[in-house]
């Protein structure tokens, strides 16, 4: 089978899966996902001569990941800030006791709350902090496990311990 025929076979075999990676796994719009999937194959096509036909799916995965990273870097270049998604976790929203002193202004109250939270947060272990921060960002347990390369049980126990500590430390009720 010549080079072009080999490439066409690979394209037809894997295009749908690469498209799904962008469209479904990374929630990129249909048109853009098609474009990124094609961009992946353009890059594969350009370096196809050095490709030996082994582990073709692995080769495509690496190329698609590079295309995705490139797209993300471009998309986020202008808005590099922590993105906190909407979460609804009653365990980490709780009442704090009112600060001492009469009639503290709302802003001062908020500053105090944040300072107390930041201080308590800093007392968590680095591993607990990483888990909690990813959880605040909206990552699911299995995603946190993939990112941190730890087991699902480890994610659960770190989050449970971190939340328990924060509640005790800040004297709140959940």
């Amino acid at each position: 089978m010549n080079r072009d025929a080999r490439f066409e076979t690979m394209y037809r075999k894997y295009f749908a899966r690469v498209y799904r990676f962008f469209y479904f796994e990374h929630h990129i719009t249909d048109d853009e996902a098609q474009d990124l999937a094609q961009e992946t194959f353009v890059r594969v096509y350009e370096s196809f001569d050095s490709y030996r036909g082994e582990a073709e799916w692995g080769f495509l995965k690496v190329t698609a990941t590079r295309v995705l990273l490139n797209w993300i870097r471009k998309a986020h270049a202008a808005k590099r800030s922590g993105e906190v998604v909407e979460i609804d976790d009653p365990e980490i929203f709780f009442d704090l006791p009112a600060p001492e002193g009469p009639d503290a202004a709302d802003r001062q109250l908020a500053d105090l709350r944040r300072a107390a939270l930041a201080e308590a947060f800093a007392e968590l272990s680095p591993a607990q902090q990483e888990c909690l921060r990813l959880s605040i960002l909206g990552f699911k347990y299995n995603e946190i496990a993939s990112i941190l390369k730890i087991s699902l049980d480890a994610v659960r126990s770190r989050l449970r311990d971190a939340k328990r500590y924060l509640r005790t430390r800040l004297g709140g009720k959940s």
Binding site: R17, R20, F21, F24, E25, H26, K61, A64, T65, L68, L69, I72, A75, H76, G82, E83, P126, E130, R133, L134, L137, F139, E143, I144, S146, I147, L148, K149
Partner: peptide, 19 residues
């Protein structure tokens, strides 16, 4: 790993597996 926690948009690439 510490950098990925600071750049969640990149962490998402690690989190979402290839189908």
């Amino acid at each position: 790993r510490a950098l990925l926690v600071c750049y969640p948009e990149l962490a998402r690439v690690v989190a979402a597996p290839f189908p």
